[in-house]
Design a protein around this nucleic acid. Structure first.
Lengths: 251, 251
DNA sequence: AGGAGCTTGTGAACGTGAGAACAAAATCGG
DNA sequence: CCGATTTTGTTCTCACGTTCACAAGCTCCT
């Protein structure tokens, strides 16, 4: 959760209509669970069913849904299609969002290739990279374009979401350009902390950090016994500054 | 934060030596910030400096570090190298962790190709896929091997971490096989909720969910004005069940 | 040596999130 | 039509996480 936007000092720290951030983060999970149920031909589901499908407990799910309104029926459960639509609307995926991907390296490639994308609320309108060797390359039905065209594209297609898949180095500059061009939501895969002005939302995905969190717990499981007790700086691993997935030569 | 492991009912809900989960999730960020400072030749840093580099506020950073011990010096700050080593040791990245990647589609490819990986605490020991057309393909200095070899590899190389980059369909089965083979930490990129026994840690990375969270906030920013007030189920978008990045034909 | 000036480590206040438990509302069977 | 049963929506309580604020401790200068 990395909201960078305006927190006005009003009394209830919750936003506008007031859905807690933790709940917002779970709504997409519910949406997917509902879709799965729907695909299985299930028309009605109890909070218990839904909670199981979504991997949470039913009390939490009910409370989450209560923030949206009273869409269930006591004694019966939730109408799958109806609830699904309500959540989709609340999240905002009943409309299409234009997305640009900047940095067409390994990961950028993977995301660009991911076909089941355009049909699901998000539409990739451009793949950008500053490396002339990449510009012009075709990926699926799209062509990599020069990063210099960013501003034009953002304006023309009303792009509000940018995905950064460059290496760490150029990420901040790319970010600044995106923001200056009018993008107000950024999904960052580069292993750096980006700074953005108020009103711009940033979320970060970082493979390396996820692995390190797993390693921490893994270490507790087995190695509990013999940890060297505060040794004096033995030659450590090359834990360096870019263990994420950033690809491409970026901007 | 998706720990599935044992929560014994002891009084302080905190684990073993007791580092809060929220703190654990930030330690890798601090580690990276320290490495960046170190690379810039900075030998000492205050909590303020570090906090800025890591994108958090200094009070939080100090409290987080205090769970590890007293590694700073009042009036001075922290020795960058020393603190870096202490955090690395705490996380467990001073040792090497063997990792297998299952599902060599677009994303599996991207992760496999990511070079700055083996040198940083995590060593990919195998790329696995069930699709015979992929088996044998060379990626970097590795070769894709048959998913059937999983058990042998896990045992031989003492693999404790598995990365799932298959599509949603086979993910649970792959997960079960991983667990049965002895893997106790799983990083899941497939857009499904995996169920695992106690003692196995799961973390999930889901592009589609991240985008949807951004979309939610984006909608609040602009569209605040005219939201159709609870319409009656208009033809909605094909919000379906696999908007993540899963690639390959998996197991 | 002693005081001024920093910076850490932590206790306490506050806010947010999770889970238990229950009352309100709906269906269904007789 | 009424009671039994089911399941939601909500209230209450507790645990967790964040932030503030300050005393303890270190260095440096005079």
């Amino acid at each position: 959760m990395t909201r960078a936007s305006s927190r006005r000092p009003g009394p209830p720290t919750r936003t506008e209509r007031g859905i807690p951030e933790a709940t917002v983060a779970r709504l997409p999970v519910y949406l997917r669970a509902l879709t799965a149920l729907s695909d299985n031909g299930i028309a009605t589901a109890s909070s218990e069913d839904l909670a199981t499908a979504a991997g949470v407990n039913s009390a939490k799910l009910r409370k989450d849904l209560s923030y949206l309104g009273s869409y269930g029926t006591r004694g019966v459960g939730y109408d799958v299609e109806y609830l699904r639509y309500q959540i989709a609307r609340e999240i905002g995926v009943t409309q299409d969002w234009a997305v640009v991907i900047v940095g067409i390296g390994n990961l950028g490639h993977a995301l660009a290739n991911y076909s089941g994308f355009g049909t699901r609320g998000f539409r990739i309108v451009a793949l950008l990279d500053a490396d002339p060797k990449l510009v012009g390359e075709r990926i699926g039905d799209m062509e990599v374009r020069d990063f210099a065209e960013l501003e034009d594209i953002v304006e023309r297609d009303r792009v509000s979401i940018g995905v950064i898949t460059t290496p760490a180095g150029p990420a901040q500059e790319v970010c600044d350009r995106l923001v200056a061009a009018g993008v107000t939501s950024i999904l960052n895969f580069a292993p750096v902390v980006l700074s953005v002005p108020d009103g711009v939302d940033i979320r970060k995905v970082d493979l390396s950090i996820e692995l390190q969190i797993l390693a921490y717990h893994e270490q507790r499981k087995s190695g509990e016994a013999a940890l060297p007790q505060v040794p004096e700086l033995p030659a450590m691993n090359g834990l360096s500054d870019l263990p994420s997935v950033g690809g491409g030569v970026g901007a």
